[in-house]
Design a protein around this nucleic acid. Structure first.
Lengths: 98, 98
DNA sequence: GCATCACTTTCCACAATGGAAAGTTTCGAC
DNA sequence: GTCGAAACTTTCCATTGTGGAAAGTGATGC
């Protein structure tokens, strides 16, 4: 009955990233890095984890002369996030406000 | 600006436990253990983590002849959970439905 | 006193996370 | 074409988190 939490999405940095990606069509690596405030290596590894899970699509394309990495949520990624957030909401549902 | 996620609360098992505790006044160890579906040692360690953070109060009292451990969210625990859920909601806020 | 229940602690293994540093790829300049 | 810099990616390493099994502890019940 309880849709459970997806460990790939639940990790704080990845959760934040997925939520960011869900809100836009595409966003670049550097912008995400600044938002999460992590090193490049760390973001790169999280992106890889999400990509290997099929949740994020990575596209390299030039912008302003330099090559940049563009990230976007895949359809399965969007669905997994939706399901994860639904599970979170279900947990929260029993918690009284205030 | 961004209230951030509390790592003590964010761990899936502890998050679920805190939400359970928030919904009631007191609940016993065994009931939580069944809900989380973890071993006694694991639950015991999570309880300890929450207790040492001051988020959960532990009381031992007899019930039906046997000693049981009763768990409840402390005031700081309730506040930390509230804050954590607020941070989660803030993240979710930008995510479009469907 | 001895078993039993209800946890706690210890022991162990393994996966996750993070940064630094080295490596790779791609441009633009020359 | 090759040199240097930007933008990642990978490797290396240390630390922490998580989980179960098994041994340990304390409070009854007999």
């Amino acid at each position: 009955m309880s849709a459970s939490l997806d460990p790939v999405i639940h990790a704080p940095n990845r959760l934040q990233m997925c939520c960011m990606l869900a809100a836009v069509d595409t966003i670049d690596f550097a912008t995400v890095r600044e938002a999460l405030d992590v090193s490049e290596s760390v973001l790169s590894k999280h992106v890889k984890t999400l990509e290997e899970s099929g949740y994020v699509k990575v596209r390299k394309a030039a912008s302003e002369g330099r090559q940049r990495t563009w990230l976007s949520l895949s359809k399965p990624g969007r669905e997994a996030l939706r399901s994860h957030l639904a599970a979170l909401k279900a947990m929260m549902a029993g918690v009284p406000e205030i």
